[in-house]
Amino acid sequence: MAQLLDAAASVFCKVGYTAASTNAIAREAGVSPGTLYQFFPNKEAIAVELGERLTHGMREAVGQVLDEANTALPLAEMMDAVIDPLIEFNCQNPVSLALIHGSDVPGRIVEAHDALHAALLARVEVVIAHYAPGLPAEDRVRTAQMAFALFKAGLELVLAHEGAEREAYVAEVKASLYRYLAPIAEAGAGAESVPH
């Protein structure tokens, strides 16, 4: 089953979910389509199983990095402790973006992704509240959404490159987020609102 899921991940990354077929997945796994059908009735079932495993893995990764120990660090160190493992997870699992960006991806995958996204945003809000306790709630929500959007945009660039160029984009993601969050943390440490 793991071999089939790995093959499906490879095929989804190469051609996208929509263009993938069970025959292509079986071929990538080096098995007959009949063998594939012993484990999965169709492409959707494969995607759902893969999506559930990825969501579980990402939920664990987020729980480990957005913990109290990391949020007690200075902002720049916290960002290293959080961003590096999240980028590493996504680099090791590029199929997660392929599944999320598919136009006809099974609804269960989209629902699980949306729930994970909401949980992650809530956790980012808690982290921002730690660094900027005086920041009004509506600003904290907006800041969390913007920081998350910056991370996701940067992540796509990171995944599109390899080697030294990938590392350079990782540094850019961190620098962009730090330059965005540091003034907010400074202003939010007091009772004043962040100037726009």
Rank of each mutant, 00 (worst) to 15 (best):
M1H: 05
M1T: 06
Q3W: 00
L4C: 01
D6Y: 04
S10T: 14
V11I: 15
V11M: 13
C13V: 15
C13A: 13
C13W: 05
C13R: 15
V15Q: 14
V15L: 06
V15H: 08
T18S: 15
A19K: 15
A19E: 15
A20M: 11
T22I: 11
N23L: 03
A24C: 07
I25W: 00
I25K: 01
I25C: 02
R27A: 10
E28K: 12
V31M: 01
P33W: 00
G34R: 07
L36P: 04
F39C: 03
F40A: 01
N42R: 02
N42M: 00
K43R: 13
E44K: 12
V48E: 07
L50I: 04
E52A: 11
E52N: 14
L54Y: 03
T55S: 13
T55K: 09
T55N: 15
Q64R: 13
Q64F: 01
Q64D: 12
V65E: 09
D67V: 02
A69C: 04
N70V: 07
T71V: 14
T71S: 07
T71E: 10
A72C: 11
L73V: 11
L75H: 05
A76T: 11
E77Q: 15
M79W: 05
M79V: 06
A81Y: 09
A81M: 09
V82D: 01
D84H: 13
D84W: 06
L86K: 10
L86F: 08
I87P: 14
E88H: 14
F89M: 12
F89Q: 10
N93T: 10
V95F: 07
V95M: 08
V95Y: 09
A98Y: 09
L99F: 11
I100W: 10
I100K: 14
H101L: 12
G102L: 08
V105G: 12
P106L: 05
P106S: 08
R108G: 13
I109Y: 12
E111R: 13
A112D: 15
A112N: 15
A112W: 06
A112Q: 14
L116P: 11
H117S: 14
A122T: 09
R123T: 07
V124N: 02
V124R: 01
V124Q: 05
V126E: 15
V127P: 08
Y131H: 02
A132T: 11
L135Y: 03
L135K: 01
E138D: 10
R142N: 06
T143S: 08
T143D: 02
A144W: 05
Q145I: 04
Q145K: 10
Q145V: 03
A147E: 05
A147D: 06
F148V: 06
F151G: 04
F151K: 03
K152L: 07
G154L: 01
G154T: 06
E156T: 12
E156Y: 00
V158I: 12
V158H: 04
L159G: 13
A160M: 08
E162D: 13
E162G: 10
R166L: 03
E167I: 00
A168C: 02
Y169M: 11
V170S: 04
E172M: 13
V173H: 06
K174L: 10
Y178M: 11
R179C: 12
Y180Q: 01
L181F: 01
A182E: 09
P183Q: 00
I184V: 12
A185S: 04
E186N: 04
E186S: 05
E186A: 09
E186Q: 08
G190N: 03
G190I: 02
V194D: 01
V194E: 05
H196R: 07
H196Q: 03
